[in-house]
Design a protein around this nucleic acid. Sequence first.
RNA 1: GCCCAGGUAGUGUAGCGGCCUAUCAUGAUUGCCUGUCACGCAAUCGACUCGGAUUCGAAUUCCGACCUGGGCGCCA
Length: 430
Amino acid sequence: MRIPIQSVTPETGHAEICGWVHEERDLGGLAFFLIRDRTGILQVTIPKKKVSEAVLAAAKKVSRESVVRVAGTVKAMEKAPGGRELIPDTFEIINLAETPLPLDVSEKVGAELDTRLDARFLDVRRPRVAAVFQIRSAALHAINNFFHKEGYISITTPKIVAAATEGGTELFPIAYFDKEAFLNQSPQLYKQMMMAGGFEKVYEIGPIFRAEEHNTTKHLNEATSIDIEVSFADHNDVMKTLETLILKTYEYVNRSCSDQLANLELTDFAVPKAPFTRLPYREAIEIAQRTCSEPIKYGDDISAAAEHAIGDEMGSHYFITDWPTEIRPYYAMPYEDDPSICKAFDLMHPRMELSSGAERIHQYDLLVQQIKKKGLNPESFEFYLRPFRYGMPPHAGWGLGAERLIMTMLGLSNVREAVLFPRDMHRLVP
RNA sequence: GCCCAGGUAGUGUAGCGGCCUAUCAUGAUUGCCUGUCACGCAAUCGACUCGGAUUCGAAUUCCGACCUGGGCGCCA
């Protein structure tokens, strides 16, 4: 019976392990093999005079990163990594790996991201890379948990759609039988429709697709969006929810992923401090005008340089609130007393935007008016507008980029590090 | 889409008109070695992205193609 390497201790007695050959060192009469599975690394020690011919033959033949099954006696050994080693009585090569390897799993020499992504299956064998995805898994678990505890209904909405969410041209067209269709850029319209469906609190974690030809370390053409929509809530309510979710996620990762964080050398991992500052857009612009070398004025989008300048000033997570209605999507709710600004917000990490959200317009006439103001045709949004005529409650929500959350949480320099098989302008394989 | 910077053994690099039969590390192959933990030692193997041009001579300069990284716009 195979047991995980993590649970092999000097008290184990006889053990059978399965895994990959991480490193081999042959000292002549004595050989050492480091065997790795997803839980850890164990040293297999072969005193050549004391083991069987079969073990010797296998040890001679096996190459690095081959898959093996090794069984034998576990002994306490101070000189061995982890204080224990396994002396094999059987050493079976399950699958021999070809040589040379496309990249060095033991990390003696580096590999560029492009090389790593081409051989991602090998790249993720490296413990520090695996740690990122184990943490990503834990973070998404914490997020799912949070929503279930809070009574949200998990939904999945179509990724193949007939119309754009926000107008725009940044959609991937696909052939859908004899019709024109697109990959969805956001679940926005569908989660709002479920407010008319009376679900009240919904969330979805799923893929979003953007055909923008951006070439940066924080954009993907296929990303994972964490989306919520809540009825009878306003922008402040859902900002509070987002803030709590971020804290809970960091706390869970901090609590349950200490090995992985150690692998990533994140000994100073810190849960952000709440409450996050609510910084009105107007004040954000003032900070940028004061501290950023590039000129910016009220009404502009916040440029990367301005974003960094404001981020430096704020130092940790913060919200930018009260945006000019003009530069937000048509569905953002304008303030009653000043319709030039709206109840939209972005959640910012000092390095980049993580999330954007808003209280939405729930009145049919106002929504149609805003769609027209953006130069869009309400007729192409009929499927979306229809629910607004039959009892749409007030509601608010946001979308949070899962990869950016992981990237900023772990200090990754490229968002591609947070996706197993990233899709960007140049990469469609593997 | 615009603007930079690059493409040298399996991997990561040095070289930037002749000293290149191309450096170093890692790796692979073979041999030696009983406590390695980036083991050590010896030998061997393995590369200038492609096409054109300039030149007596091109990895090195120029042009084009292809590929890659990064910045910007925009956004999650």
